[in-house]
Amino acid sequence: MIPPTNTADYQEKFLQFLIWFIFTAATLSAVVGLGMKYIIMRKLVQEDWLIILAQNVYLAECISTALGVSAGLGKPWASLSEELKDNYLKTEYASTVLLVLSLAIIKWSVLVFIQRLSGGTLSRCIHQSLSGLIGVWFVSSTIISLFQCEIPRPWDHVNGRRCIDRRAWWSYVSVINMLSELFIAALYLLVLLKVQISRKRKAIVLSLFLSRLLVVAAAIAQLVIFFRAFPSPDVTRRYKIPVILNETTLSISVITACVPYLKPFMESLEAGVVRVPSLVRSEEELSLGRLTTESCHTPGPSNSTTCVSAHSS
């Protein structure tokens, strides 16, 4: 294999490495988290299948982004041929839709998990309202993205006609993304307030839940960098950092969605300190710090069996 001979070649390989490294981190997190949950539950439930679906969409988004790197992301726009310019704009067009779809599916997965974790105490109205908001956000963002410029070249926001204000559009996508994550973190807190556990375990569970705020931090960083890059007509060279931050935001979203399935939280489940109806259905059931044991005895010659239910703290 002939080594790269210029900076552009090194840069392309480095961007490709970053994209797939970030994706691999999210994939490993999903595999470990879902694998641990499967060991405990012996099955996968709705939120798990949503995570698997989101990861597949994420894979498609990574492929599209990697093709964008091959087409010229990171290189000066003026140095690209017309064919490469068009190819880059098409990959950006596709990856943006896949990015928003993957984020929406992850949010739906987390909401289903929270609803299950609350044991039905979370208001169905709250759950459905937030799920609906995410659906409206996804549909509206996607429609605007698909028709950002006049047909027949809706992907060409550089030379296309009657294009949208991409800065305003991306602000809408990012702000709703961040607000929905804040609402999700608040729902986690509401669930945790109802759980009777030790302070140490509560701190562990709280830190796992609030890790979703890392998605907000990554989205803020991406929005700030995008604003700085936006005025430049050199869309391939100036947009490389916003693209990497997009991948980082998506990866963190997957990782933090799977974090509650990891060992510290599952240890709390096994210790019987958190009640998760339908989350662990096996021969025994978890309860809020109380384990119910049922003992039966046969009193003497009557051969009648008496069952006594005893509660121990």
Rank of each mutant, 00 (worst) to 15 (best):
V308R: 12
V259D: 10
P4T: 02
L262Y: 12
N159W: 00
I144L: 08
N159Q: 03
H311S: 06
V97G: 07
K85Q: 14
I143A: 08
I255L: 10
I255Y: 03
P277Q: 14
T249V: 05
I252S: 10
L28C: 15
Y261P: 08
L101C: 10
S287T: 06
L130F: 02
I225L: 14
A60H: 02
V32D: 11
F21N: 02
A271Y: 09
A71K: 05
P299T: 09
M41Q: 15
R238C: 00
R199W: 14
A229V: 06
C307S: 04
A217I: 13
I40W: 12
K200Y: 06
L193V: 07
L98P: 00
N159E: 11
M36C: 11
V308H: 13
L146M: 00
R166S: 00
V69K: 10
L89T: 07
W108R: 00
Q55N: 13
T305D: 09
L208C: 10
A203V: 06
V112N: 15
P152S: 05
I105H: 04
K107Y: 13
G120M: 06
M266Q: 15
Q46I: 05
C163P: 05
N246T: 12
M36N: 13
Y58H: 10
H297P: 01
L291A: 08
A25Q: 13
S232T: 03
S140H: 06
K263H: 14
V276F: 15
H157P: 01
A218Q: 10
A25L: 15
L98C: 03
S278P: 00
S302Y: 00
L28F: 15
P152W: 00
T142G: 08
L189N: 07
V205N: 02
A219E: 11
I144D: 05
L250S: 08
H311E: 13
Q222C: 09
V158I: 05
S180E: 13
I151V: 02
E247Q: 15
P299K: 07
L288Q: 08
E270N: 07
W170Q: 08
V280W: 15
Y10H: 14
L179P: 08
E283V: 07
E284H: 12
V139D: 12
I134V: 11
S268I: 04
S253A: 11
L28R: 09
S207L: 03
A94G: 03
Q196W: 01
R275M: 03
I176A: 12
T256P: 13
T306E: 15
L192D: 04
I225A: 14
V112Y: 15
D86W: 04
E150D: 11
K202W: 01
I252A: 02
I204S: 13
E284Y: 15
Q128G: 06
I255R: 01
F17R: 11
M178I: 02
R162N: 02
T298F: 10
I164L: 11
L210F: 00
G135V: 00
I143S: 07
